[in-house]
Design a protein around this nucleic acid. Structure first.
Lengths: 118, 118
DNA sequence: ATATAACACAACTACATCGTTGTTTGCTAC
DNA sequence: GTAGCAAACAACGATGTAGTTGTGTTATAT
């Protein structure tokens, strides 16, 4: 199942907004930390809170944003709320961004006299 | 040169910030429109302004953001400033996002009785 | 039933950023 | 030089959102 997302040429306004929203949601340090933590598997709010070091309310809030965006899923287990990655694509996205960052650094590096080191 | 961006497991704080910034920069409707317009090739501020329908100052400002992020490049041609895509990776990113959106829509679609239409 | 724990919701403050208005810079033409 | 155009810069108001504080809400345990 290849994802050959043939995108229309002048992007329709609605799609622009959707894409922007998606990027904006991921473009938050706290949410990236949450997604990164969830990479190891599902976790409760408590565990995420401990892993990241943020207030319970803040973690819950950001998880709510990710949940409404369909990026994570939620499951109730007794007294706990267990969150998990629902859309693995986000990691490919992050890897892509990391690749881009790396390319930029390499380009900057090439401009310096010292080469790779220094 | 395959970009196998092996990302460290707990993402270092600096990298988190960089990734977030990158996403945040792309996550703006106006900037997405600019990038979309530049997909056809380099263009002056005037042309972009006309294509998108925004004020000169606003277009210039957003282009400045994209330029500082290294996503577009700038070239002076007489009285004009000609911008072009510097990092083609952004389109793959957008396609990825579109793919994710499409998957979500399909999932929602599957939940509806009518199937694909309606 | 009561107490406690885990999580979510609501109101609020602080801060960032979008878009506008006004101005400045840099180039071309006369 | 002066006039005129393209683009960038600067300051401002309005809006959005991150994080905190305070308060429900739901489930477990005694």
């Amino acid at each position: 199942m290849s994802t050959i997302t043939q995108v229309p040429r002048p992007l329709p306004e609605q799609l622009v907004e959707l894409i922007a929203e998606r990027f904006r949601i991921i473009g938050e340090p706290m949410r990236i930390r949450l997604l990164d933590a969830l990479r190891e598997g599902e976790a409760s709010v408590q565990e995420l809170q401990a892993a990241i070091g943020a207030s319970q309310q803040n973690v819950s809030k950001h998880l709510g944003v990710l949940l409404r965006a369909g990026i994570v899923s939620r499951r109730k287990d007794g007294n706990f709320a267990v969150y998990a990655i629902a859309d693995d694509g986000v990691f490919e996205l992050c890897d892509h961004v990391c690749g881009g960052l790396r390319r930029q650094l390499e380009n900057l590096d090439a401009l310096l006299p010292g080469g790779t080191s220094r």
